[in-house]
Design a binder for these strands. Structure first.
Lengths: 196, 196
DNA sequence: CCTACCGATCGGTAGG
DNA sequence: CCTACCGATCGGTAGG
């Protein structure tokens, strides 16, 4: 009695969360089983449920962690008094860093969010839409100020976001993966493609 | 006896194939069930197996149709005597057209191929790698001839391919979807990002 | 954290 | 093309 288990429990949960992101990324949410996850964590399947409520809870924790992280960074960028191209470059660098550092979580958030259940699904979609609109506004500002070519801002946002989320392909083929070089190349192509 | 059923059968199979692409796109391969597919087609689940061998056969038919189509177009482009930027623009237009016209199949091919079983999985990955290498070679040629900025060609290919495969997001929000305008915007950003 | 187990659903087959 | 059904596997719970 009276064992201090809070700390232990929360770190256990974090391990499960981390491992689930890896598993969901590798197999896909639907194809990944809780029995597989349990084996990776090193317990029986039933024991997982002492730490988490359900499989779907894992998915929504992953997705909302990422979404919150993105939203907070957008707050920062919007508050700055820099020109649009600078803000866009900063966003692109942030997104690439996130993809490289928290690869599994971001990947799962990008590709598996459709398996979220309500009300999380609607909430997530709304946050996503908001992020994209804020991004598009920055591009539109740049167009008005003649920093950026006259293009459809929504299209530009989707090109950028999907180009970055495609970084998964690099991870698969691990050969000489250099995050810094990747970033410079992508900035050259993407920012170069917008600049007037 | 002696009913002519070949023609009828093959068109039935095509219907199943088409509907399966729609279902796999909407739910994901693993989450889509054969019972759902049967209901959409208008038969009992068991009856599907008079036309197809298995669920996985549907996936590999979809993926290899797309892969073959892409490979054939690459043959054409390589045979031309145009400069690199022209070839790249042509490839981008082709890929966008494919995404718009055969949306479900291309989407499934892009996002669900990992559920292919051997030996199809290895074969598919190999075709994919080849396509990307051929694309990268065209970019490298452009860099040598100073038409294109000095960037990593592999990175450029992945940026282009993922930007295009992201077109799914447009389809979701069906509002005023104009394929032509989309194409021009993407050419501006992507080709503009490569051009020296 | 484990043993034992549940109801649901899956892809697919037998047989007509 | 259908009825009837199979073995496997799923997410999750009861009870200790």
């Amino acid at each position: 009695m009276g064992r201090i288990k809070t700390e232990n429990n929360s770190s256990r949960k974090e391990i499960i969360l981390k491992k689930s992101a890896e598993l969901f990324k590798e197999k896909g949410y639907k194809a990944a089983s809780m029995r597989e996850l349990a084996e990776i964590v090193g317990v029986e399947a039933a024991s997982l449920y002492n730490h988490i409520r359900s499989k779907s809870e894992l998915l929504h924790l992953i997705c909302f962690n990422v979404a919150t992280h993105y939203s907070a960074f957008m707050d920062e960028v919007e508050a700055e008094k820099n020109n649009s191209l600078y803000k866009i470059e900063k966003l692109i660098r942030f997104l690439i860093d996130g993809m490289v550092e928290n690869f599994e979580e971001v990947y799962v958030c990008d590709r598996e969010w459709k398996y979220l259940t309500e009300p999380y699904l609607s909430n997530f979609q709304s946050q996503r839409r908001t992020f994209r609109k804020r991004f598009a506004s920055i591009i539109e500002e740049g167009i008005r100020k003649k920093e950026i070519k006259k293009i459809d801002a929504t299209t530009a946002v989707l090109v950028i976001l999907h180009a970055i989320s495609g970084i998964e392909s690099w991870h698969r083929s691990k050969q000489k993966f250099d995050g810094k070089e990747l970033q410079e190349n992508m900035i050259t192509i993407l920012v170069g493609g917008l600049k007037k």
